[in-house]
């Protein structure tokens, strides 16, 4: 599979001098399902924000589909769709339909094309019936699916989820996880950050662990998960018994 994301010696220092990321190098193949785990403050979100140019490197390079993010952040944002941790802060439309249309409208697509994309994205996440609803009245799981639809309507090649299960109840987790797995099966590249491997590890094909702004473990989930607790990440219960983890979808 070709590489969709290439990160070379990425370092990021914040304005106050804190080092957010230190010499990160990471390649991700198109179609992969990668989980990035780490404790709070390990640099997961900072890393994700470099993928679509919301943050730019202090040194090093990030390339998406062969093009440097720093050279063309807008292009990177079209290629990498980002689902934020707080779904509420991502809602910009007055209705579900308007919110999903926000991205395609920013891409200056024709009005019929915007309509087509919105319909397709809402159908894909099962929210077509709620198109006229006010987003703030949706449940937690529905809001997260709305965020996914908003990103899908922009037809990105990579979808990045930042702590997608936080503040969700069990049905909400299952809804979002099901959506994620379906997207991966359809060929989408998925990147996901979490400090809770239990919910998602069964579906990942690569696990990266971060600590203090560095990548400290990277490989197949079954191999890497045994080291997780060394880096302040709780292993899934099944992994503690020698397995990889059970799917929450079963």
């Amino acid at each position: 599979m070709p590489l969709i994301i290439e990160i070379q010696h990425l370092t990021h220092c914040f304005a106050d001098g804190t080092i957010g990321l230190a010499d990160i190098s990471l390649d991700i193949e198109e179609g992969a399902f990668v989980v990035i785990a780490g404790a709070n403050g390990s640099g997961k979100t900072t890393l994700l924000r470099h993928l679509n140019g919301l943050l730019l490197p202090t040194s090093g390079t990030v390339r998406v589909a062969g093009v440097s993010v720093a050279d063309d952040p807008r292009r990177a944002r079209m290629r990498v769709g980002m689902i934020f941790q707080d779904a509420d802060s991502q809602i910009v439309g007055e209705t579900v339909h308007d919110d999903v249309a926000f991205g395609p409208e920013n891409l200056r697509l024709s009005r019929p094309e915007v309509g087509r994309r919105v319909d397709g994205a809402l159908a894909a996440v099962g929210l077509a019936e709620l198109a006229g609803r006010r987003p703030h009245r949706l449940s937690g799981g529905e809001k997260r699916r709305l965020s996914i639809a908003g990103v899908l309507a922009m037809q990105p090649r990579v979808i990045v989820f930042d702590e997608p299960f936080s503040n969700l109840d069990y049905p909400g987790v299952r809804q979002v996880l099901g959506q994620m797995v379906a997207l991966h099966r359809s060929g989408q590249t998925i990147l996901l950050t979490t400090h809770d491997l239990d919910k998602v590890l069964a579906h990942a094909d690569r696990l990266v662990i971060m600590q203090h702004g560095r990548i400290v473990a990277d490989g197949l989930p079954a191999t890497v998960v045994s080291e997780a607790e060394t880096f302040d990440v709780r292993s899934p219960q099944a992994a503690q018994r020698g397995g990889r983890g059970l799917s929450w979808l079963n």
Binding site: R77, S89, V92, G103, N106
Partner: peptide, 20 residues
């Protein structure tokens, strides 16, 4: 909150010139 919203809008390519 406004900062988070602005970042989320930026992530979805918000600009002055869009399909009105």
């Amino acid at each position: 909150t406004a900062d988070n919203l602005a970042v989320a809008m930026e992530a979805r390519c918000y600009s002055e010139t869009r399909t009105d």
